[in-house]
Amino acid sequence: MTLLEIRNLHANVNGHEILKGVDLAIKVGEVHSIMGPNGSGKSTLAQVLARRETYEITDGEVLLNGKNLLEMKPEEAASEGVFMAFQYPVEIPGISNAYFLRAALNATRKYRGQEELDAIDFLPFLKEKMRLLDMDERFLNRAVNEGFSGGEKKRNEIVQMAVLEPRLAILDETDSGLDIDALRVVARGVNTMRSQERSILLITHYQRLLNYIVPDYVHVLVDGRIVKSGGPELALALEEKGYSWTEAETIRAAG
């Protein structure tokens, strides 16, 4: 069954066309990776899917489980199961992680007509998630991302993902700025979350992350279009030959 279907997606920011006709279909339970050089539109794609309003959609459509994703507000998309792990997680001073996570979970539960969890029910649930991800419980009472190291922020994104249990998890360059130990922890977290009910979209510049999270499909995004798709071996080929290789191929195909 298809979870996400992107057809001919065009998006502008400040009048510049960034996405120039993206087509992509992700089935339930699949892990896809989008790779591409800087400025190719990878992060724009992630943010459009998360419904950031700075982007203007000029053409195309995106269906999430058959529903029009492009008509949803960010919080509606979130409640429909879209989660984005941010490349640069934001600090919210004065709000504890535990409080924030419960508010977020309850907002989505409310949207789905489920009962909200009180602090007494929520805390054991959260602690279990943190144990699975090897996160220190001290994180619970610290303000959201405030004073966190780069690695801690990224791990915190994965904790949020584990709590919110999304249907579509988008990881926007989660590997950037991570040392190898932090990368392993994050990858283990994502692999724990891998399931038959959940689809994952990994956005990355480097092949390195894909050694730890092996995707079912790899797509190469160049200049706002997917120019090549394949299995995990495509990532290795890219690592070896560089993005210019696909660009050359595209030109050849077009010519």
Binding site: E75, A78, S79, F86, I92, G94, A107
Partner: peptide, 28 residues
């Protein structure tokens, strides 16, 4: 910042709830 509000909305909070949360954190 718009980035703070978007971050919270991406986690399921409405814009209203997001602003309120940021302000409550500021006043904690």
């Amino acid at each position: 910042g718009e980035d703070q509000i978007f971050y919270l909305r991406q986690r399921g909070l409405s814009a209203e709830e997001a602003v309120s949360m940021i302000i409550n954190g500021f006043c904690r």
